[in-house]
Nucleic acid binder design. Structure first.
Lengths: 207, 207
DNA sequence: GTTAGCATGTAAGGAGTTACATGATTTT
DNA sequence: AAAATCATGTAACTCCTTACATGCTAAC
């Protein structure tokens, strides 16, 4: 389970956990956090919502009060939905450290406990590290890329992934409660996540 | 035209331009440059090659010399393929600055002239800038994101895109022949592409 | 001899985008 | 009055991934 397709589901469950919402609103929020890349289309959001309705993960209510705007369908999580959300969030396998999937999970990290958080963070880090190693290894076997643009692309790519790895390391240290950690002094100006963000409510919302 | 699906086609044409190759080899190289993300599967490469064969963009030859390994099918570009490659590379519309598409184009920048390069680079930069503006605007409307992880994700996302924008700016300056440019002094340690990489062979390889 | 890597393919299925379709409400 | 934004949805299509299927060669 937890294949790529469950990404939207996880995100929707997480967002609805913060309060009932209608589709349009959901899409806007999703686009704000989803990968900074492509936008989520209605053509994939609404069918996903219908599917979740069928599976009983969410409920729809059409508010009959004074309608400011057009009829809006407000969704909220059911108990089954909460269970499913917790189940999905506690999956720590490879699927959990895929790009989009990781971002969503991270966004809702407050809903899991530290153990899960650490596993996901470390999983993602080692996945990125592998990628880096593989590229660097294969790069040394091939000739030094005569083309300047190809070389620049490669350099930039490696640098980006390295930054990402440092970011993850900082987060892992913060989770473990390491206040600032010495680290390698030359790269110490890397990121330093907002505060320290260690300890956090271990309670997963079981309302 | 130039929808998402043409990305593989463009990449294959570009690579074969640097010399004939068989599928397995092609895949390896593609994976080295393609987005640093997901790997390209055989299930999408081989069908793509077949399609290009049908369209006459490439030719296959089974080398009958001493076979070290198993039978390998070596592909090379046809004249039609070269034309198509040049046509694709000179498209400067929005599709050209999509993530993967941009990377591929950049990789083969040597095959186009500076005007095209500048348009693609600037297009991508403004696309990223838009994204940044939209997020920052919507962020100021919503409350300040109470959740620490949500906030951290946002911060990191913004920072990454900002870095990308600086990278593109440096490249644009380099293209224009600006040696180092003053810029804002605090962010001057940003990237500085390998050399200056201005001028480049305007000749597109016409076999 | 058996595992690992080279090498090429096909079939089924999933996920999401594009384009279409509709209509209310608010702002200019 | 027009344009923009809110709001929900469907159908067709494209693309890619997964899993399967095959078989050679090199290394252990």
């Amino acid at each position: 389970m937890a294949r790529r397709g469950d990404t939207i589901e996880l995100a929707v469950l997480g967002l609805l956990h913060e309060g009932p919402m209608h589709g349009y609103e959901l899409r806007k929020r999703l686009n704000l956090m989803l990968g900074w890349g492509r936008l989520l289309s209605y053509g994939s959001l609404y069918p996903a919502l219908k599917k979740m309705l069928r599976n009983g993960l969410i409920e729809e209510t059409v508010p009959s009060g004074p309608q400011t705007r057009r009829q809006r369908i407000v969704y909220k999580v059911t108990e089954a939905g909460t269970n499913e959300f917790e189940r999905l969030m506690s999956e720590v396998g490879p699927a959990a450290w895929e790009d989009d999937n990781f971002d969503i999970r991270f966004r809702f990290f407050s809903s899991t406990d530290m153990e899960i958080r650490l596993r996901v963070l470390e999983g993602r880090r080692s996945r990125l590290q592998e990628r880096l190693d593989r590229v660097q290894r294969e790069l040394s076997m091939t000739q030094k890329e005569a083309d300047r643009y190809a070389a620049e692309l490669q350099r930039h790519g490696v640098e980006s992934v390295e930054r990402e790895v440092r970011w993850l390391s900082d987060l892992i240290n913060a989770e473990r409660g390491v206040p600032l950690q010495d680290g390698r002094p030359e790269t110490s100006q890397s990121s330093k996540p907002s505060e320290k963000l260690p300890e956090a409510p271990t309670t997963s919302a079981t309302s």
